[in-house]
């Protein structure tokens, strides 16, 4: 199926979870958060949150700013 990660379309397996895509992204262990369809998903639920067709995933991390 196809989902969007930060507006970029990617293909994932049907039983993929948020954890599945996180593993591909070389994320730092602290300072990262994820929203699925504009709702924040706590880190503890990444491995159990199954992705669905057309899901929009937003992955954010710390950045410099005032």
């Amino acid at each position: 199926m196809t989902i969007k990660v930060n507006n970029e379309k990617i293909s994932v397996e049907n039983n993929a979870t948020i954890e599945t895509i996180v593993k591909q992204m070389n994320l730092p262990s602290f300072g990262v958060a994820i929203a699925r369809n504009n709702k924040m998903v706590p880190r503890a639920e990444w491995s159990t949150t199954l992705l669905q067709e057309d899901d929009s995933i937003v992955v954010v991390k710390a950045a410099c700013g005032g």
């Binding site: 070389n26 991390k61 700013g65």
Partner: peptide, 13 residues
């Protein structure tokens, strides 16, 4: 100290 957030790339380096 303030910190912002931004969307990250799939090939975040």
């Amino acid at each position: 100290v303030t910190v912002a957030m931004k969307r990250i790339d799939m090939d975040n380096q």
